[in-house]
Nucleic acid binder design. Structure first.
Length: 103
DNA sequence: ATTATGACCCGAT
DNA sequence: AATCGGGCCATAA
């Protein structure tokens, strides 16, 4: 069992729809800690299960791909998102069109 | 229990 | 536009 924050973050991350991406800042904010973007990234790295936590759908607030410890790292992440229909701009995600909007 | 680190973000230069 | 530094959080060792 994990802390409430971690549980919240994982739960939220698991809700990210296919073809969309969320920023660490966004997850942190939704989890209740707008300043914990960093911690969110760490949680993603130590994510309990990739099947329920699509950490590849989480990018930097500027749409920049960061981290990813599986496969070829950033490369694999980029390809995955692209396959899911996320609009890409070079090595960055087009947040204007593919940012996950909660509501 | 304490220290150090990291898949971050923002403002300033 | 690019680079530098500082700040905040939770987790791992």
């Amino acid at each position: 069992m994990q802390s409430t924050f971690a549980t919240n973050v994982y739960h939220i991350a698991s809700k990210i729809p296919k073809g969309k991406v969320a920023t660490y800042k966004q997850l942190a904010t939704l989890a209740g800690k707008p300043k914990a973007a960093r911690a969110v990234g760490m949680l993603m790295k130590h994510n309990p299960d990739k099947t329920i936590v699509p950490c590849h759908r989480v990018v930097g607030s500027n749409g920049k791909l960061t981290g990813y410890t599986f496969g070829n790292g950033i490369q694999a992440k980029k390809l995955l998102l692209k396959e899911e229909g996320v609009d890409f701009t070079k090595n960055n995600v087009n947040l204007t069109t593919s940012l996950w909007k909660t509501n």
